[in-house]
């Protein structure tokens, strides 16, 4: 990997990591209510999103910080949204869980597990029928793969040959239940193959691997070969929701093993072979500074006017 791209990837992964650590500190300090952390899944988000074009449409879920920031969402406006402020991307009506940013192609974020899977077929149909060359990308987890709608979505996308990239971030956890308790298979890509969709499982903690395979998948979809399925095999290093989930139910040895594979730390070692420690430190310092400013911006931002309570229900 060339230096410039490596630094770009690292910058995004570090930003996501620090952003979520910032949120955690705010939550622990009772300055925000709650959020669902994607800590440990940064490589999956950055690897996939970096392989997309500007016109592509992303659908995500409640564990979306990585997808948002990798796509270029401003941390300050994300933070403002988490705090329910008028300057947030959704005017404070989403809060931490379902942030959409239409201008960046992040559409219809749903936090009903599997909701995004039901919507992406429609987005794919639009892109296909309106003769664009764009594709729809749907992020979901192993939990959503256990919803009936997962199977309905893959089946229809396959039958209609829709331009959809399914990205299953298999983080091993379905809220408070380990994946092994709920499914007989290890790789959800096995299910996808049954719907005649090309499907692979990749090391979700390796950003280069994710990027490389996403490029391949995207090329296939743009060549009008129908949907493609990538399972990024990764791990949710934090609990289901912050700050109350203390992960008492998590096997300590498993957690430790995955911590050794921390995608941000591991990738930094690789970047250090391409860039100087000073370069990296400067990049990290800039991000820390940006996040401090973002927190300040969000805190200083006004709350929405109370007349917003009944606005945006209908198109009037």
């Amino acid at each position: 990997m060339e230096k410039e791209r490596a630094l770009d990837f690292y910058e995004k992964m570090f930003l996501i990591r620090k952003y979520e650590e910032t949120l955690l500190a705010l939550a622990q300090n009772n300055e925000i209510f709650t959020f669902c952390s994607s800590l440990g899944q940064e490589a999956s988000a950055v690897g996939v999103v970096s392989a997309l074009s500007e016109d592509d449409i992303i659908l995500t879920n409640h564990r979306s910080a990585g997808h948002l920031l990798a796509r270029g969402a401003e941390p300050r406006r994300c933070l403002a949204e988490v705090m329910g402020k008028a300057t947030g991307y959704c005017k404070g009506k989403s809060g931490p869980l379902h942030i959409s940013v239409k201008e960046l192609g992040i559409y219809l974020t749903s936090t009903i597990v599997g909701g995004e899977l039901s919507l992406v077929t429609g987005v794919g149909l639009s892109l296909k029928m309106l003769k664009t060359n764009a594709i729809a990308v749907c992020f979901f987890g192993d939990g959503a793969a256990c919803e009936g709608i997962f199977h309905e979505s893959l089946n229809l996308a396959s039958v209609w040959e829709l331009p959809i990239l399914y990205v299953c971030e298999n983080n091993q956890w379905q809220a408070f239940v380990h994946r092994k308790e709920t499914m007989r298979i290890d790789h959800i890509s096995e299910w996808a193959k049954r719907y005649k969709i090309p499907a692979i499982t990749v090391d979700g903690n390796d950003v280069e691997e994710v990027y490389k395979n996403t490029k391949k998948a995207v090329d296939s979809i743009r060549s009008q070969n129908g949907p493609y399925f990538i399972e990024t095999y990764t791990y949710r290093l934090r609990g289901h929701m912050e700050p109350m989930d203390q992960q008492e139910y998590v096997d300590k040895e498993e957690l430790e093993n995955w911590r050794k594979k921390d995608p941000v730390i591991c990738f930094k070692q690789k970047v250090l072979e391409l860039a100087s420690a000073k370069e990296i430190e400067e990049l990290e310092n800039n991000i820390e500074l940006e996040l401090q400013r973002a927190v300040h911006f969000a805190k200083e931002s006004p709350y929405p006017n109370l007349d917003e309570l009944t606005k945006d229900v209908f198109v009037v």
Binding site: I57, S118, L119, G122, L125, S126, E152, N155, L156
Partner: peptide, 21 residues
């Protein structure tokens, strides 16, 4: 025609309606 699966029928309509159809 569609598969006999109301969830994806309506979900597809919702997604399509938000993106130009």
């Amino acid at each position: 025609n569609v598969p006999l699966a109301e969830g994806i029928i309506v979900g597809t309509a919702v997604g399509a309606s938000a993106t130009g159809l």
